[in-house]
C-alpha cells in the first residue's frame, strides 16, 4: 500500500527543534491570538481548555541535580496517511486536502459527536463546551476576520494557519504569481518562536529547509510507529528526548550514534551528560 500523499502538489509540514525550544509558550499564545481561540476564566482544566498548539512538559526522570525538563510543542500533526480523525468523521467535517496536506475542520459542518477527538492519538482536537467569548468585556474587538470564531458544540483544532496560505496566495495573485516562495506561507507559531525553533515549509519541495531537516538522524516524530505519517517532525540532540517520542518497550529504542551516511555533515556529539 502506498503511504502518504505523494500525488499531491504540496505537502506542508514542520520541524520543531527541541534543542532551540525554550519552553516559553509564545507559540501557544501566538496560536490562540491568531486563530480566535476562546479564553475562559478557568483554564487549568486542560481537558476543557482549547490549545491548538500545546506544550507537553517532559522530564528525563533523573534525580536531582541531574534532572532535565524539556517540551514537546504539539500542534495538529496533519497525519498524511489515513488521519484517524478523518476516517471516523460521520459528517465529513474533516478532510485531508491532498493538495496541501492540511487536515481541514469545518465548524459549520461538525455535529459535535467528538468521535474524532477520541480517535486522535495526539489529543490535538478540542471540543467547545461553551460559547467562546465573554459578551460584555470588549474582548471580541481583537478577533481577526481571517478565522471564523467557533460556536459551542463543535470540535476545533490546528489548521496549520491555512488562512495564512490563503493570504499568501492572494498576495501572490496580486503580484501575478501562482507559486509561493519558501517562507511566504508559515504558521503563526513558526513566525512567533523567539528562538526560531520551528521550521515550516513544503515537504514535497526538496529545496525547502524542512525537506532537508527531516533527513537528519536526530529528527523523529511522535508515535511514529502507529503509521499515521505525521507531518510534524521533532529534532533533538538529546537521546532521552527522542526516546520519549514513542512508547518504547525496554530494548526497543536504538540510540542514534553516528549514522554513517551523515557522519561528515552531521556530527552527533554526545549530549550534556558527557559534558
Amino acid at each position: 500500500m502506498k503511504k502518504g500523499n505523494d500525488h499531491g502538489k504540496h505537502k506542508y509540514g514542520m520541524v520543531i527543534d527541541i534543542d532551540k525550544c525554550t519552553g516559553c509558550g509564545t507559540c501557544m499564545v501566538a496560536c490562540a491570538a491568531e486563530n480566535n481561540v476562546s479564553v475562559r476564566a478557568d483554564q487549568s482544566d486542560k481537558e476543557r481548555t482549547i490549545t491548538w498548539m500545546r506544550l507537553y512538559k517532559i522530564s528525563n526522570g533523573k534525580e536531582f541535580p541531574h534532572t532535565e525538563v524539556s517540551y514537546f510543542p504539539r500542534p495538529c500533526m496533519h497525519c498524511d496517511h489515513h488521519p484517524p480523525c478523518v476516517s471516523v468523521c460521520v459528517a465529513t467535517a474533516t478532510k485531508l486536502d491532498f493538495n496541501t496536506g492540511i487536515v481541514s475542520q469545518i465548524y459549520t459542518r461538525c455535529i459535535g459527536c467528538r468521535y474524532c477527538q477520541a480517535a486522535c492519538p495526539y489529543g490535538a482536537r478540542y471540543f467547545n463546551w461553551w460559547d467562546a467569548f465573554p459578551q460584555d468585556k470588549g474582548m471580541d474587538r481583537y478577533l481577526t476576520p481571517e478565522v471564523s470564531p467557533r460556536m459551542r458544540g463543535v470540535v476545533e483544532k490546528c489548521t496549520f494557519c491555512h488562512h495564512r496560505l490563503m493570504r499568501a496566495k492572494t498576495l501572490a495573485y496580486a503580484e501575478d504569481r501562482r507559486e509561493l516562495e519558501e517562507g511566504e506561507y508559515v504558521t503563526a507559531c513558526t513566525e512567533a518562536c523567539p528562538a526560531q525553533a520551528i521550521t515550516f515549509g513544503d515537504l514535497n519541495n526538496p529545496e525547502h529547509e524542512v525537506s532537508k531537516l527531516i533527513k537528519h538522524p536526530f529528527t523523529f516524530r511522535l508515535l511514529e510507529r502507529i503509521g499515521t505519517e505525521p507531518k510534524v517532525y521533532y529534532h533533538s540532540s538529546r537521546d532521552w528526548v527522542r526516546k520519549l517520542g514513542d512508547n518504547f518497550l525496554p530494548g526497543e529504542y536504538t540510540p542514534v550514534v553516528n549514522k554513517t551516511w551523515a557522519e561528515e555533515e552531521w556530527s552527533t556529539k554526545p549530549g550534556r551528560d558527557e559534558f
Binding site: K95, D97, I102, S104, V147, T159, M166
Partner: peptide, 8 residues
C-alpha cells in the same frame, strides 16, 4: 473543492 479552499 477541498473544504479548506472555500472555508475558513
Amino acid at each position: 473543492n477541498a473544504c479548506f479552499v472555500c472555508h475558513k
